[in-house]
């Protein structure tokens, strides 16, 4: 293998993770829609999960399930089980976070009728009590929030 190809071969997984992370960060910073921000957060989370799974990888190793024919005492025979366990729990926490985030979004939509950030800020900054004129924009809700 030429030298530059070896260089790429050793690092391309990390590069992909870096780009995934930047895409998630871009979504969280620049998108105006709160739902798209949550999607950016999910992408960011998954890039971190991939980073840990990449760190657990070893060449010529098998999955961390004991096989009687493969010696357990040679550590290089099995992938590192610790990052896999940590990421297993991280995925579950990620699902829980996404569930709560979407619940908050539903509540925001119920109360304000929008999940666009700029419209939301406008509605938050406008004086709350006189929402008689804004009543027609979300008909079923009365009262301030």
């Amino acid at each position: 293998m030429p030298e530059w190809l070896e260089y790429v071969h050793d690092r391309y997984a990390y590069w992909a993770i870096v780009f995934l992370m930047i895409i998630g960060l871009y979504g969280m910073l620049f998108k105006n829609n709160l739902h798209k921000k949550v999607v950016g957060m999910i992408i960011f989370q998954n890039s971190m999960i991939l980073l840990f799974v990449t760190a657990a990888f070893k060449w010529d190793a098998t999955v961390p399930v004991r096989d009687a024919e493969i010696d357990v005492n040679v550590v290089g025979n099995y992938l590192n089980p610790l990052p896999h366990t940590l990421m297993l729990t991280a995925i579950v926490v990620g699902v829980a976070i996404v569930g709560v985030a979407f619940a908050l979004l539903i509540k925001i939509y119920d109360n304000y009728g929008t999940i666009e950030e700029d419209e939301l800020l406008e509605k938050l900054q406008s004086p709350a009590p006189e929402d008689d004129d804004s009543e027609d924009s979300f008909p079923s809700k009365g009262g301030s929030v």
Binding site: V95, A96, G99, A103, Y109, D110, G113, S140
Partner: peptide, 19 residues
């Protein structure tokens, strides 16, 4: 049951319909 409960909370019957 946690996941089912989250789903049931999100998709409720007779939610006040938004705009």
């Amino acid at each position: 049951t946690g996941l089912v409960s989250i789903f049931d909370d999100m998709v409720r019957t007779n939610r006040q319909s938004g705009p």
